[in-house]
Simulated assay, not measured.
Amino acid sequence: MTMQHQPVETGSGPTLLAEEPTRDSWPGVGIVIGGRSPSRMAWKRVRQDKVTMTALVITLLFIVIALLAPVLTWLTGWGPITPDNKAINPDTGNQPYGSLGGISLQHLLGVEPGTGFDLFARVVYGLRTSLFVGFASAVVSTVVGVVAGLAAGYFGGWADSLLSRIMDVMLAFPQLLFIIALTPVIQNALQTDSHGGTDENLRLLVLVLNIAVFAWAYTARLVRGQVLSLREREFVDAARIMSAGRRHILFRQLLPNLWAPILISFALAVPQNITTEAALSYLGVGVIPPNPDWGALLSDASQFFLQDPMYLFVPGVLLLILVLALNLLGDGVRDALDPRSHRG
């Protein structure tokens, strides 16, 4: 019986892994023997974890709903800023007609008190806003953190000292307070007559950048620690002996061995960023009305809680489910990529 192997570099150095399955050479025996890549083994662990798979399905469902928001609202006949004055009663302070906030076949989740906006349309479009800010800021912070962590861990010396002190300073900042203070200042500085977009779009860009600026240090600290360990491994020494340049060592030797902690960091950053964006909108420094946002919906709903509890209940529960699913998915990814961890 023969099997072909090739060296594969991992976080613990080069190991042997079967490249392609081969058949037994004995006549009449058709046993296929092959190795599994780390990604396949991780995916197998994810599939075997019912909690992680449930979280994955819920997350994908939310993403599909956000992508199909225009189609879903077209089917219902109401947009996020299309009022239905016939659904609210002016004699009761524009409260929705009927029970449970005006839930009916025409308005699946009811209507907003005061405005008459369809709550289903507001929630669906608000989901797009939350997911965009959460994922976009996580991408930016991860890219910046990976580059800074690679540089600090590999070069060492004054570069490591400088970048490490910057990380310490960023981690010491009270993130939410500084974002609240800086968001309107940065927007006013960027606001011109030719910025190429609406004020709402500019505010989204400012939110993404502000959240990313205060989040990249977590990823950088994690990557730096991994690089400090990997740079002393035999496969890095072998690359140096073969006169490999720094770019090759950084991006062809070290970076491929960091995909697991980077993916874990990204998966855990998304729900945190969504929560931060919702908190900013709740405090009035997030998404600009009339753009829908779950944090702004919660802020408005708090004024009508006694008259219309469903107005607060719907976006609040959906935000809880989304963040919980993303957190459980991030924990599952971490467990799947770390063979030594086991869910209790």
Rank of each mutant, 00 (worst) to 15 (best):
L119F: 10
Y125H: 07
S299W: 05
R23Q: 11
A296D: 07
L337P: 01
L328K: 09
P27M: 14
M242T: 04
L329G: 06
R233P: 00
Q6E: 15
R247T: 13
W78L: 11
L75C: 11
G34E: 08
W43T: 05
P256Q: 05
L312H: 01
G93A: 04
P174F: 03
M170G: 01
M170L: 01
D199C: 14
F214G: 04
A159K: 13
D293A: 11
G225M: 12
G344Y: 04
V213P: 00
I288C: 10
A244Q: 03
A151Y: 07
L16D: 06
R128S: 11
R203F: 13
D335S: 06
A296E: 12
L182I: 13
T76E: 10
N273A: 14
L16A: 07
S99R: 01
S302D: 04
H195V: 13
T275Q: 03
I288G: 07
D118N: 15
N257M: 09
P38K: 06
E19D: 15
L204S: 08
L127R: 04
G286L: 08
Y97N: 13
I65T: 09
I103K: 05
D168T: 02
A18S: 13
F117Y: 14
L318C: 07
G295P: 05
A181K: 02
T129R: 07
V29H: 12
M167T: 10
A220C: 02
I65D: 05
G330R: 09
H107I: 15
S243I: 00
S299G: 07
G93I: 02
V32M: 13
I274Y: 01
S243G: 00
I166V: 09
S12K: 10
W158F: 14
A244V: 04
D24E: 10
L176S: 01
A138F: 02
A269G: 08
